[in-house]
């Protein structure tokens, strides 16, 4: 790479995004996304919290008591129909484990670009006993069938037990795994 060909490009990220992006965001783009988040807020009031409204992404935070109702409304009222990804995020400083559902839609073509990011938090235990402690969430399998394997994965990787899930078994880890769930922050990998 010659250095002079890089120089003009290097300036771009500093100038362009500052001018362009806020314009796009504030004027037209989030209109559709704002509607979606407004509908949810209208229905549930202050039970839900809108985390962010970006291009094509709407983030909703819910407490664990309400996640089932909100998910049901998302399916029936907003036409979302499948879950793309379920991720757990461990927050030891808040003593919580977040579970994030990315929900999309196949049946409604206007929602094809959209993903609804539904996030909820479970209580975190210092000394986890997966399945037998307070780290629990209601399952969404009866609403979105596609979460079945994802929730099994979250259970073994974070120890979040999904109440009502018929098949809380191990999926990826070896059968004789006796350590704490590996994706928690207090599980350190060797040499690090």
């Amino acid at each position: 790479m010659s250095s002079d060909s890089n120089k003009p490009v290097e300036e771009k990220p500093e100038t362009k995004p500052v001018v362009k992006k806020p314009e796009e965001k504030s004027v037209e783009l989030p209109k559709f996304e704002k509607d979606i988040s407004d509908k949810i807020v209208e229905k549930f009031g202050d039970k839900v919290e809108v985390a962010f409204v970006k291009k094509d992404r709407v983030g909703i935070n819910v407490s664990r008591e309400n996640v089932h109702d909100v998910a049901e409304f998302i399916r029936d009222g907003l036409n979302y129909d499948h879950v793309e990804s379920v991720s757990g995020v461990d927050y030891p400083q808040d003593n919580e484990i977040a579970v994030v559902y990315h929900i999309g839609s196949y049946s409604d073509p206007t929602l094809a670009r959209q993903l609804l990011v539904l996030s909820t938090r479970a209580q975190r235990e210092e000394n986890p006993i997966p399945g037998n402690d307070a780290t629990r969430l209601p399952t969404l399998r009866d609403i979105f069938y596609s979460v079945e394997f994802h929730e099994r994965e979250i259970f073994e990787m974070f120890g979040v037990y999904f109440e009502g899930h018929p098949d809380n078994r191990r999926l990826l880890l070896p059968e004789d795994w006796a350590d704490i769930p590996p994706l928690r922050k207090d599980f350190a990998i060797k040499g690090r």
Binding site: G131, F155, Y161, P166, N168, R169, L171
Partner: peptide, 18 residues
């Protein structure tokens, strides 16, 4: 019928034993 896994207590059952 469905795979029979109606025992929620068997949390850490290895796959296949269900």
């Amino acid at each position: 019928s469905e795979i029979q896994t109606d025992k929620p207590s068997s949390n850490w059952l290895p796959p296949g034993l269900a």
